[in-house]
Design a protein around this nucleic acid. Sequence first.
DNA 1: TGCACGATGAAC
DNA 2: TTCATCGTGCAC
Length: 202
Amino acid sequence: MARRLPRRFYARPAVDLAPDLLGKFLVAERRGRRVAGRIVEVEAYVGPEDLASHAARGLTPRTRVMFGPPGHAYVYLIYGRSFLFNVVCARRGFPAAVLVRALEPAEGVRRTTDGPGKLTAALGITLADNARDLVDGPLWIEERAPAAAVAVATTPRINVDYAGDWAAEPLRFVDAGSHWLSRRLPDAPRRRGPRHPPLAAG
DNA sequence: TGCACGATGAAC
DNA sequence: TTCATCGTGCAC
């Protein structure tokens, strides 16, 4: 049983939405082919006062979608090579979003998904998906039952050292039991072998 | 019009 | 640890 998340699910602060996205499934369907993964790592970008957020510089052509209604995709190009996927949340006029940083492969996944740029490549998410409505369209987030328990852990966000005091805020949320995180947790034991199982063939 | 700089990933 | 690579925002 799967239920696409409704608009009201996204209509709340990023710090509230972020941990609730863990365990949900990000799904992309295009040309009849479905690719999906279970969300295991996210980061909250809480508002215009958050110096790590693109919205800290106000409304620009790029950040316009962050100022729009919740439940839409904010996709942008970083370092000239990777697309990053965010979920716009809160309310119209207040820029907030949650960055999805890692997935556990579910269906149709042919590439690794343990990083924000990797998961968009695996799901075929590009700039063409920017501003897309997640409530009604070919890209969405759904809840599946029965849902496995999520052991939520927090850490500072990745690669936001430029953000002053905001860099240390515990706004990265992960499923501590997942082998598909973009980085190991600080106190995770060192293990031999691959961090995650190989992708299934197909 | 020019330029510094990334919410990264892969190689070394 | 280094670096490819290019859109964005801002300085000039």
